Every structure is written in structure tokens, then in C-alpha cells.
Simulated assay, not measured.
Amino acid sequence: MLCRFAPSPNGHLHLGHAFSALVNADAARAAGGRFLLRIEDIDIARSRPEFEAGILEDLRWLEILPDETPRRQSRHVRLYAAALARLEAAGLAYPAFESRAEIARAVIARDIAAPWPRDPDGMPLYPFPRTALSDKERARRRSEGAPFVLRLDMDRAVAEVGGDLSWQEAQGDPLGPPASVMATPAAWGDVVLARRDAPASYHLAVVMDDAEQAISHVIRGADLFHATAVHRLLQALLGLSPPIYHHHRLIRGADGRKLSKSAGAPSLSALRAEGLLPGDIRRCLDLPAGGSTSYPASRT
């Protein structure tokens, strides 16, 4: 069993990160497997070495250091480029040139007639059909240096894999019996696969990294449950073996919202400075001290 914790070094870890890291480490060790760390530093502008050092210090303090040298996304850009090239060559990815402002205006205009569809995260679907520009025109604009993002042609991609898509979701806890979950990637529309400032989107990078590291169990927050449909589609398109998934409960603040760096969630380093011990963190998160994988599913 191989599990991984994959934080971005763009801020300090908080209790939500601690929960995910501990659940992954506990599951790997309970199964006699390995716990890996992946540093998702593909956003070079926001990634900082002091935050990466802080991640390692927090894991050391929690007594769950990874079993291998951490993998850094920034060292594997060629891997993502090769996957993008395959999708483009198959006609499944295309450059799109609309700015965020143009997209927002188009969505507002369409909302006047009827509510424009939203993805499972509540964001409006991309409102421009691929046929709005010919492939020849897209190639011309691209060759002239016009800014663009690469999007997945969802209709073609779904047609390419054919039939029903599903993934295996461990029930109850990360080592629980898996059950089949139907994947509906079309609900996400033509998702972005790469931008000028990011050589791969989360969707693409995560499936390539998990495959390269031979991750057997992807254990992550429930907020990524629906996105697994896109990941399962990309795995099918790229010939990657899917792992077993488990989407754990989220850790929320007093306001009921998921803890986040942007909302100023207290960092683990701050809690450590206040005198808390690793056992206190486990108790706060309703995690057993012995590293068992059984944990309450109801608390959010």
C-alpha cells in the first residue's frame, strides 16, 4: 500500500492538513505500506522554500516523516508536457483564448435567458463551444503568441473512452471495502489542463504524479470527491491504472467553513508554539493515539 500527502508550499500547514497527513500515514503503516510526501510546487510564483521547510518540520513534529525523499512537481514538467502533447495530438485538447473577464461576461449574458450550468464546485461551465473557432484559427493565434489556456474537449474525451466510467471508493475508512462510484466527468465541462503560469492544472498533474509514484490509495478531502470523475477520465485517456480512493471528512472552523490558509486558519507551528503536543493534535482531530485507521466520519 502506497499513500501520499501532497501539500502546496504556499503557506503554513493547519489542522486540516494535519488530519489528511495523519490519516494517510496511519493507513499506510496499518497496512504495512509506505507513506510518501509530494510537494506540489508547480505554481512557482507562490511556492517558497521556507514553507517547504515548514512542512517537513511539521511532519517531523507529528512523527510521520515520509518513507522516501519528497517528490517535487517542479522537477517533472516534461512529464506533464508529454501528456498534454498526447491529448492534443489525439484532438482531445485545444487552446482557448478568452480572458477571464470575457468568460464572466458571457456567463452573465447567458444567465439572463436561463441559469447557466455550474460544475459540482458551483463554478460556471466554460461558455464557448470549441467550434466557435476553427482549429486552423486557433493554431494561427497560438503561433502569433496570443495568450491561451489548454482545455479538455469534454465531449470528445467522453466519446473517446466510451461506456461507463467509475472508480473504487473505500468505505468507512481508508482500508474499508471499496465500492464502485459512477464517474460523470461531463458535469465539469471543458476543464483547463494547463495555463501560461502553470504547466499543468491540478487535474492533470495529480493523475500523472499518482501514476508515476505508483500510489495505490489516494486519501484526500471530501471536497475533491466530485473532481475524481475528471481524474478517472484522464486516467482512461492516458492509459493509467486508477488507484483506490477514499475521501475523508473535512476539518471546519467555528463558522462551519473548511479550514484554509487564505481564511487565516491557525498554523501547526503556531499551535506548537502555544505548547500543544502531537497527542493534543490527534485528540483535537478525533484521531486515536495508536494510529488506527478507524475514525469518526460524522464530525466535520
Rank of each mutant, 00 (worst) to 15 (best):
I219C: 03
R232Y: 00
G189I: 03
T228K: 10
D223Q: 02
H248W: 11
D210Q: 07
L237Y: 03
L237D: 00
Q235H: 09
Y245K: 04
D209V: 11
V192G: 02
V230E: 00
L204M: 11
W188P: 08
H217C: 06
V218G: 04
A200W: 08
G172C: 14
D209I: 12
V230I: 15
R232E: 00
P185D: 08
L237I: 01
A214H: 14
W188H: 15
F225R: 14
P178Y: 08
D173S: 13
A227R: 13
L250Y: 01
S180V: 13
H247E: 05
A198V: 12
P177R: 14
L234F: 05
D223I: 05
G172V: 14
Y245R: 02
D209W: 07
T228G: 08
A205M: 04
V206Y: 10
Q168N: 10
L193D: 04
A205T: 01
G176V: 07
A222T: 13
A227S: 15
M182N: 11
L224E: 02
G163Q: 12
A187M: 10
D173V: 11
L233N: 05
G172R: 15
G163C: 08
P174D: 00
L240H: 12
V191K: 05
L237T: 01
L175F: 08
G176M: 09
V192L: 06
Y245M: 08
I219T: 05
R195E: 00
R220C: 05
H231P: 00
M182R: 15
G189N: 06
P199T: 10
V192Y: 06
D197N: 14
I215V: 15
P185K: 11
A227D: 07
S180A: 15
S166M: 11
L237M: 01
L193I: 06
V191G: 01
L193E: 01
Q213Y: 01
P185N: 11
W188D: 03
G162I: 05
I215S: 04
D164N: 14
E212D: 14
G163N: 09
R249N: 02
Q171I: 13
A170Q: 06
A186L: 13
Q168S: 14
L240W: 05
W188F: 15
T184W: 09
A186I: 14
V192W: 06
L237S: 02
A227P: 06
S180F: 09
R196G: 10
S166I: 09
T184S: 11
L234G: 03
G163V: 08
A183Y: 11
L250P: 00
H247G: 03
A186V: 13
S241L: 09
A187H: 09
R195P: 04
A198N: 13
Q171S: 15
G172F: 15
